[in-house]
């Protein structure tokens, strides 16, 4: 619920400009990141799935959850410094060790008119 409210009040986009609106203040870089890993059961299932190939749904979910979390953290940071939009958002994913990945979301916090 709180997430939905946050999302409504804050505009997140990977464009550098917002059509029809002007940037009033530029607040600098904001970022959010998270490191996630899978539990063993899912890992084993993924190992089995590797024999026949195809989508590893558990991992897809993991990455999506992690990305959502990273975005939320970035948005929280943007809200705390008084921004109402984050522009030019980018995502980056790095695998750290086996079964663990870091997801980073970063962008420019701005105040739109």
């Amino acid at each position: 619920m709180a997430n939905a409210l946050l999302r409504d009040s804050l505009l997140v986009s990977n464009l550098e400009i917002v059509p029809g609106r002007r940037v009033r203040t530029h607040l600098g870089l904001v970022q959010g990141s998270t490191v996630r890993s899978k539990h063993v059961g899912r890992d084993l299932l993924a190992g089995l799935k590797n024999i026949v190939g195809g989508e590893l749904k558990g991992y897809t979910e993991l990455m999506q959850e992690a990305r959502e979390e990273a975005t939320q953290r970035m948005m929280a940071q943007a809200t705390s410094i008084g921004a109402n939009a984050v522009l030019n958002v980018r995502y980056q994913a790095t695998s750290i060790t086996m079964g663990a990945a870091e997801i980073l979301a970063y962008g420019t916090a701005v105040v739109l008119e």
Partner: peptide
């Protein structure tokens, strides 16, 4: 565009693995 736009970040992702034969 002439009309003001509403915008939102959209994304799609998938994790895929190869099979043993491949």
């Amino acid at each position: 565009v002439v009309t003001p736009q509403e915008c939102r970040l959209v994304s799609g992702s998938v994790v895929i693995s190869s099979d043993y034969f491949k």
